[in-house]
Design a protein around this nucleic acid. Structure first.
Length: 320
RNA sequence: GCCGAGGUAGCCAAGAUGGUCACGGCGCUGGUCUGAAAAACCUGAGAUAUCAGUUCGAGUCUGAUCCUCGGCA
C-alpha cells in the first residue's frame, strides 16, 4: 500500500465558501486525513501585517522559510501542527497584488507539493483567483501600464466605453452591460487591447480538482459573523490597525480591506467606534453574499452544510 | 393645556411661485467579473401621516384629526 506513489493523479482539493463558514479549520483536518498541504486562495491574507482582520489565526507562529525561489524571494509557510500553509504574507500592504501574481505561485506550489508526495489543498474565498486557477487566465501575462491607467482614470465611463468599442469591437461585445459601465474594467480592457506584443499566456493546468463548498443559510451566517467580529476585536484588531497606519497609508491597496477600512473614520476622529463596528459587521455580511454569487456560477461544487454532523466527523469524506 | 417647528420608502433626505412615471444617499433584491476582486460595477423593488376641501390638476394651498420634537405652563 504505497499511498504516496501515484499522488500526482490524486485530485487536488479546493475548500471554498463564504466568509465565517470555517474553511480553514476544515482544511486543516482534511490535510491531516489526506496527507495534504494547504494553499491559501485569499487576496487579503496575502498581505503581511493584516493578521487579525483577515483571520490568519497565526497566533505566535513564525513563518518558516522554504527553498522555493520566486520573484518575491524564497517562499515561506506557516506550520499549523505539522501542516503547512502557503501563500500568506507575501507582500506588504503598500504593494499591489493580483491574480497574475497568485497564479504562477499556485502552479509552482502544486508541482512542489505533489513532487514531495503530498496533496495540495486550496482553501479560501477569493472567487476570481479560484476561477483563474481552474480555468486559466489568458491575459494574465499582459502587464498593467500605470501611466496609461492614470491617464484614463480621468475619463468618464461612457467615453471609455466608446474608446473600447472603437478600438476593439469584439472585446466590447464580449463585455456584459455591467462591465461596459465599469471604469476599472474598461480601463483594463483598453490596456489589453493596446498592448502590442501579447506574451504567451500561462499554460493551463491539467490537474483535476475536487471542489468542496461550505454552505449555510444567511440566517445562520449572520450570528457567526457577529461572533467573529467580536472575537477579532478582543484579539486586538484595533491595535493592529494602529500599528499599520503608522507605517502605511489608508490609500494603500492592503488597507482597502474589510475590517480595516471601516475603522478609517474612527482613527480620523470623524466617527465613533460603535458605528464603525456596525458598518464592518454589515459589510462582512454583504461580502458573504457576493461570494455566494460567485460560487453559484462555479460548476461542480460539492456542497456541505456546515451544520451537518457528518462534517464534524469528516465521515462525508470517507469515499474520497 | 398654550406657543413654535415638523410629519416624504426600513433609515437619512431634496422638492421656488400647485402641472409629465417625486432628486439623491444608506440599507434591501438579484446580477456582472480573465492583472485592484474583502475590489470595482450593474439591475430591480420600496414613499408624499389620515380625512375632507379649493382647483381642470396638490407633496406643494385651506381646514380638521392623529403623531413627533422644542419652549412655556
Amino acid at each position: 500500500m504505497s499511498s504516496t506513489s501515484n499522488s500526482t493523479s490524486k485530485k487536488i482539493l479546493v475548500i471554498l465558501g463564504p466568509t465565517a463558514t470555517g474553511k480553514t479549520s476544515l482544511a486543516l483536518r482534511l490535510a491531516k486525513k489526506f496527507n495534504g498541504e494547504l494553499i491559501s486562495i485569499d487576496s487579503r491574507q496575502i498581505y503581511r501585517g493584516l493578521d487579525i482582520g483577515t483571520g490568519k489565526d497565526i497566533g505566535n507562529l513564525r513563518p518558516q522559510v522554504s527553498n522555493l525561489e520566486t520573484s518575491c524571494g524564497k517562499l515561506h509557510y506557516y506550520l499549523f501542527d505539522k501542516t503547512k500553509l502557503w501563500l500568506t504574507d507575501l507582500v506588504t500592504p503598500d504593494q499591489a497584488f493580483s491574480v497574475a501574481h497568485f497564479l504562477p505561485l499556485a502552479h509552482l506550489l502544486i508541482k512542489d507539493i505533489q513532487g514531495r508526495g503530498k496533496r495540495p489543498i486550496f482553501v479560501g474565498g477569493t472567487g476570481f483567483y479560484l476561477k483563474a486557477l481552474l480555468q486559466g487566465l489568458d491575459t494574465g501575462t499582459i502587464k498593467p501600464r500605470p501611466f496609461l491607467r492614470s491617464a484614463l482614470t480621468i475619463l468618464p465611463a461612457p467615453i471609455l466605453s466608446f474608446l473600447i468599442r472603437k478600438t476593439n469591437p469584439s472585446k466590447w461585445k464580449s463585455m456584459t452591460s455591467s462591465d461596459q459601465k465599469n471604469p476599472r474594467r474598461l480601463i483594463r480592457a483598453l490596456e489589453v487591447s493596446l498592448s502590442r506584443k501579447n506574451p504567451p499566456p500561462l499554460p493551463r493546468l491539467k490537474h483535476s480538482f475536487c471542489l468542496i463548498g461550505l454552505k449555510t443559510d444567511l440566517k445562520t451566517l449572520r450570528p457567526l459573523i457577529q461572533k467573529r467580529v467580536q472575537k477579532r476585536l478582543e484579539q486586538g484588531l484595533l491595535s493592529e490597525i494602529e500599528n499599520l497606519i503608522k507605517k502605511y497609508n489608508w490609500s494603500d491597496p492592503g488597507l482597502n480591506t474589510l475590517s480595516y477600512k471601516e475603522f478609517k473614520p474612527y482613527f480620523q476622529g470623524i466617527s465613533d467606534l460603535k458605528t464603525c463596528i456596525k458598518n464592518w459587521e454589515h459589510h462582512e455580511y454583504q461580502y458573504a453574499k457576493r461570494q455566494i454569487t460567485w460560487f453559484n456560477k462555479q460548476k461542480d461544487i460539492t456542497y456541505l452544510n456546515i451544520q451537518d454532523s457528518n462534517l464534524k466527523e469528516l465521515k462525508v469524506f470517507d469515499n474520497e
